[in-house]
Amino acid sequence: MSFTWRYVVSPDGSFYRVANVNGSLDAVSDEDLAQLHPEKNEDASPPRRCSRCGTELLLHWHGPLMTRVWMELCPTCDARRPAAWAFIQWYRDPDRDPADLPQLFEAWETETMHAHGWTRVPQPEAPPSSPVPSHLVPRGHG
């Protein structure tokens, strides 16, 4: 089973991601994915403030499942963290390239989770091939 994320980015920089298990969403366009996510009314709730300094957050996100980490992207507190700073720059750039989002987000997520004591386990590559039975190994090699 393979697992990746599909990111859908709005022109204002807001985005969401959808689990793409076994490539099931590979043939779905970004426009079709965007229709699955209703527009939320940002005016309905006040902007979130950084829990560390009170500055308005650029982004707030739940960390990976069961970690109970609330991730905050604060332009004041996170300016010295390399992955966060790169993400802040992308987020503020009106000419941002949506194709950069997956790498920037995942680097920020990794950096933030590391600061909370978590480490990302690398995804396994292809499953290992089954070993050759010993009776099929050429002589002198087994």
Rank of each mutant, 00 (worst) to 15 (best):
M1E: 01
M1K: 00
S2A: 09
F3D: 09
F3H: 13
W5K: 08
R6G: 04
Y7I: 04
V8P: 03
V8S: 05
S10E: 14
D12F: 10
S14G: 13
Y16W: 15
V18K: 02
A19I: 09
A19H: 10
N20R: 03
N20H: 03
N20E: 02
G23H: 02
G23P: 02
L25I: 09
L25R: 01
L25A: 07
D26F: 07
S29Y: 08
D30Y: 05
D30V: 04
D32M: 14
L36C: 14
H37A: 12
E39F: 08
N41V: 14
N41L: 14
N41Q: 10
E42H: 10
D43N: 11
R49K: 15
R52H: 15
C53A: 12
L57E: 07
L57W: 09
L58Q: 06
L59S: 02
H62W: 08
G63Y: 03
L65D: 12
L65F: 12
L65I: 10
L65W: 11
M66W: 11
M66D: 13
T67N: 13
T67R: 14
V69L: 12
V69H: 11
M71F: 05
E72K: 07
E72Y: 09
L73Q: 03
P75Y: 03
P75I: 06
T76G: 09
D78Q: 07
R80D: 15
A83T: 04
A84S: 15
W85N: 02
F87V: 05
Q89H: 08
R92F: 01
P98V: 04
D100E: 14
P102T: 07
L104P: 02
F105H: 00
A107S: 14
W108K: 01
H114T: 14
H116R: 13
G117Y: 10
G117N: 13
T119M: 09
R120Q: 09
P122M: 05
Q123D: 13
P124C: 04
A126V: 12
A126K: 06
P127L: 14
P128R: 00
S129W: 00
S129L: 14
S130N: 00
S130P: 12
V132C: 11
P133F: 01
P133D: 00
S134G: 05
L136Q: 10
R139H: 08
H141Q: 11
